[in-house]
């Protein structure tokens, strides 16, 4: 069952949303790859520290939102993560919540949001 999240807690769910979003196309990725992809796809605007990425991934796994597969790469074990059906439903709900929040912020900031340059 997809849990309804209070949009006021949306900042708490950002790492979860980003990681689920990275796996949305059905690909399997490992921790380092996910961290690098978040940084690269956002042009360096967002980055996830290892102190955040692994606890989040393990929590997502415990909630059965992602599945894992262990592979040997260059003689060392590597854990690959993939989105589960339950994870897809959670991603859809989280995306919906995030879009609502983004629209609401846009209403407050109005046109200035387009003008303000990132620092």
């Amino acid at each position: 069952m997809v849990r309804e999240k209070n949009p006021t807690n949306f900042m708490n769910g950002v790492p979860e949303l980003l990681l689920l979003g990275m796996l949305a196309d059905g690909s399997e990725m490992y921790g380092y790859e996910l961290a690098r992809e978040v940084r690269d796809r956002t042009g360096g605007a967002l980055s996830m520290s290892e102190g955040v990425i692994y606890p989040t991934l393990h929590t997502l796994e415990l909630d059965r939102l992602v599945g894992t597969r262990r592979r040997e790469v260059n003689g060392r074990p590597r854990i690959y993560y993939r989105l589960t059906a339950r994870g897809k439903r959670r991603l859809a709900a989280a995306t919906h919540d995030w879009s609502r929040v983004a629209r609401a912020i846009k209403l407050i900031l109005g046109d200035s949001a387009d003008v303000i340059k990132p620092v």
């Binding site: 102190g51 955040v52 606890p55 393990h58 929590t59």
Partner: peptide, 18 residues
């Protein structure tokens, strides 16, 4: 870059369910 043991420990033990 990985962060100190304390930072990693703090993040990991704060995660619910771990």
């Amino acid at each position: 870059r990985l962060g100190s043991d304390e930072q990693l420990l703090g993040g990991l033990t704060a995660a619910p369910g771990l």
